[in-house]
């Protein structure tokens, strides 16, 4: 093969590589951007779901504390839950998640005892009182509606995250 032909072949191969690299960079950049946004969707959703019940317990205690007033029947127990709530970190570090899990269980257990005490104070039966089950039912009804995405406005048939990934 003549030298000029070899040079032409080399340049052809260089050109193919250049196009390949351009495509690779674009594909990679688009996928990384897509992944980042998809990760944010999950992060928003999971963060919301994990902290909703804790916020709800905070709100319930806020009102209970006011209604308890000067009697302070619930004061110590409320303070105990509040101290646990105040230390909850809201990031996704491994240590923060482990601490969250630990506190979450303790907060729920302590809150349950507060509700039982409330039932005693009000002298009501289980059906007429505020139970942890009812509190959790409300929490679940609010938090358990979507799977991994920020919803489109006014879209009745929202596709799942998996669908989005497949369509992308």
């Amino acid at each position: 093969m003549a030298e000029s032909e070899l040079t032409g072949l080399d340049k052809l191969l260089d050109l193919e590589e250049e196009f390949y690299n351009q495509g690779f960079e674009q594909g990679s950049a688009e996928n990384v951007k897509h992944n980042y946004i998809e990760g944010k969707q999950y992060g928003l959703q999971v963060g919301f779901q994990r902290y909703l019940l804790l916020g709800q317990i905070t709100g319930l205690l806020d009102v209970l504390e006011v209604l308890d007033g000067d009697k302070k029947v619930f004061a110590k127990k409320i303070e105990s839950v509040r101290s646990l709530l105040s230390g909850v970190k809201m990031d996704n570090d491994v240590a923060s998640v482990a601490d969250y899990e630990n506190r979450f269980t303790r907060i729920k257990n302590k809150f349950r005892t507060i509700l039982l005490l409330l039932q005693k104070q009000l002298k009501t039966g289980p059906e007429d009182t505020l139970s942890l089950t009812e509190v959790e039912r409300v929490s679940l009804s609010i938090a358990d509606e979507i799977k991994g995405r920020v919803e489109e406005d006014n879209v009745g048939t929202a596709e799942s995250l998996q669908d989005q990934v497949q369509n992308w």
Binding site: G43, L44, G47, M90
Partner: peptide, 8 residues
């Protein structure tokens, strides 16, 4: 992305 949006 997950870690960035989780606190919000």
């Amino acid at each position: 992305g997950f870690d960035t949006a989780f606190p919000l």
